[in-house]
Amino acid sequence: MNTHGARIAIVGGGLSGLYAAYRLEQEGCGDYVLLEARDTLGGRILSTGGVDLGPTWFWPELQPGLDRLVHALGLERFAQHEEGDMMGERSRSEPPFRMRGYVNSPASMRLAGGMAALTDALRAGVDASRIITGQAVRRLRRHAAHVELDCVDAGAGLTTRQAAHVLLAAPPRLLAGGIAFEPALPDALARQWHATPTWMAPHAKYLAVYGRPFWREQGLSGAARSAVGPFPGYLAGAIDAVDRGLRKLSLKSPTPAASAR
């Protein structure tokens, strides 16, 4: 068993965890470690070839904190194409039908290169030596002046880390079911965490990539809705929650830098 220490331990390497590390770097706090159970970062954000397998859109007017971060990182964005009719499906016994399309208000936006452009940009602003993947936190023990974190790697090797503060950057239900807390979480909080749904967790996403958007030539937007399925998502809440948590550590009010490059 190995023992390591840091002032702050971030549990989870998705958007929340990476943003927390990015903010700590901005404030000149390099005494932290980010622990991710998987071998890759990004959490529920996953893009391949510029196509999003996880969340795809964001809404600047509804998510101003996320919008400011996108601007601060200098990321290119574009509006979701919505012009034209859409296709609908009422039942499996009826053929799909054409219907008037809907336009989102406020408009939904996407990132060039996929949403992974966001987590990639955050990772680029973080000290790589502070990121440790393949470390699943299994137990948290609170002591008078610090918290101990027991981490297990793929080979079942145990590493115990110490931190003055722990920032949990993962879905509450996963934390409650995957980490043993000593002392135990209050019953009401444990029930709340177990009952908190993970956004889009029960959903699957199917993608078809075409060489050109031929449906637009027929006056279709590319959108479709079905009452029987399957047919044709977290970001802003992650940003806001991390900012609130970091303020409790007496960091300055979050104001993203003009550029991360």
Results as ranks from 00 to 15, higher is better:
R247A: 15
Q218D: 11
A121D: 05
E89A: 12
G5M: 04
R173Y: 02
A257P: 03
A204C: 13
Y234D: 05
Y102I: 12
L75M: 11
E217M: 02
A258Y: 04
Y32A: 08
Y22C: 08
E82R: 11
G233R: 06
P254N: 05
A258S: 13
R212P: 00
Y102P: 00
D127E: 10
G219T: 10
P96E: 08
M200D: 00
A107D: 03
R110P: 00
D39W: 07
L62I: 03
I8M: 03
P254D: 10
H165I: 01
T255N: 08
P172M: 12
W193S: 05
P60I: 00
D153L: 10
V11C: 10
N2V: 11
D31C: 07
A257D: 07
E82A: 13
E76R: 14
P232F: 06
D39H: 12
P202K: 10
A180K: 11
W199Q: 13
I132W: 11
M200L: 08
G5V: 04
A9M: 06
R7A: 12
G178H: 08
C29A: 06
M1S: 14
G14M: 10
A79K: 13
L15Y: 03
E82H: 10
Q192T: 11
A9C: 10
A236I: 00
T119N: 06
M86Q: 15
E94H: 12
H4P: 00
S16H: 04
G84E: 12
G12N: 05
Q135L: 11
Y102W: 13
D85M: 08
L158I: 15
V209G: 00
D39N: 12
R98I: 14
V11M: 12
H71P: 00
V103H: 15
W199C: 04
G245A: 15
R130S: 13
E61T: 03
S221V: 13
